[in-house]
Design a protein around this nucleic acid. Structure first.
Lengths: 208, 208
DNA sequence: GATAAACAGTGACAATTGTTACATTACTGT
DNA sequence: ACAGTAATGTAACAATTGTCACTGTTTATC
């Protein structure tokens, strides 16, 4: 287990990798699994070895607003933040591609901050990059209309999957932007007319 | 200077207070001053002794979207996050009530994390509470229409000023919610008819 | 192959929000 | 008291977004 950890988290020091290996459990989840629910107590800090996770903010009426992806080499900032205070999760996390996760027990998360400089830097960097990503999400909803938000959404998904073929239904997109399917269909049609996308069933092709 | 620091930041250990006193500069700003601009490099971690600061996210067209207040005893999470990486500010901060600030030079921010447990906990707690506040902001814009967003906005301001008399013009509110003055006037009128507020010039009275 | 279920297209209309234009009211300074 | 300015009120209309109703199309299942 040492080797893959070192490879996926290259900034970790040798001692930290050993500590991770000795103390952390590996857990696997299937696509569709929900690994964290809103209101649930967090017992571990989660590091992603492989696969993809989508992180959502939920409202009382079942709305699921997409915030960001977690990918290999990244960690769930919320699970770190809540760690020290033993707080409830403020978010929901859903597996979109089978994942392997490193579960670091909360007390260790804290202890390592003092012991391993590279863990400290990893945690701080995780905070920073998530905070910045969330600020960009605020931009998109605070300053932009739905057409631009949709483009932003599609681009982010393309970045993560590393391709131009997005396997998403209109309904799925609508839910994650908290609007209705018809609105998304309408806007996508306009984007198609502008030559930005090509529309297929369960498949949106980004043309530029 | 020791005494006020200890009083405003009660969680700080005695040694930390001494270190703060010995190394940090106190700086004052007047209402209206902008103490941090988007894109500016951050050279200090900012702690608030007295006064009030509003933190905004800006867009290219001059929009200023209000995110949260900074009050005495609090610190700017962005200035901590950017500290370690010497990054540019992602936000704009404006003084709304004359402030006194403790400016902690960036290298110390980092050094103290290892030296002072109470500093470490303060920093982590600052991250946590700001992250949570930002998530609530996302809720309000992602899930709610302008009428509810306005109520949320007014409540937050009432909480901070500790009174029911909000000295805000409609134009000011409109800018901070990124909408137009007319929309705010319209919605406030409706709220007045529902008996939630009483409207005066430059003064909105919350009735419940 | 028939049938159901999921997905997508679209027109019509409602509700909300944005914009324009102008009137009215309240404060400011002289 | 008066002019000038900032703040607010409001009507009319445009644009965007939300909702409803219904159609067709593809996919999965039996």
């Amino acid at each position: 287990m040492l080797d893959p950890i070192k490879k996926i988290f290259p900034s970790f020091s040798t001692e930290l990798v050993k500590d991770v290996d000795a103390n952390a459990a590996i857990q696997s989840f299937k696509a569709g699994d929900i690994i964290m629910r809103t209101g649930q107590y967090i017992k571990n800090t989660v590091l992603v070895i492989s696969g993809k996770i989508k992180v959502y903010r939920e409202d009382e009426n079942g709305g699921e607003f997409f915030m960001y992806y977690l990918q290999p080499g990244q960690a769930c900032a919320i699970s770190m933040i809540c760690a020290t205070k033993n707080e409830k999760s403020q978010i929901m996390a859903k597996v979109v591609e089978d994942v392997e996760l490193i579960m670091v027990p909360l007390p260790l998360m804290d202890k390592w901050m003092m012991q391993h400089r590279s863990w400290y830097e990893f945690v701080i960097d995780t905070y920073r990059s998530r905070f910045e990503e969330v600020l960009e999400v605020i931009d998109s909803i605070a300053f932009r209309a739905m057409d631009e938000r949709l483009e932003f959404y599609l681009k982010r998904h393309a970045d993560v999957c590393g391709c131009n073929e997005l396997k998403l239904s209109h309904q799925e997109i609508a839910s994650e932007l908290n609007t209705s399917r018809e609105v998304i269909s309408r806007l996508l049609k306009k984007m198609e007319q502008r030559g930005i996308v090509a529309l297929h069933r369960n498949n949106i092709e980004l043309l530029k």
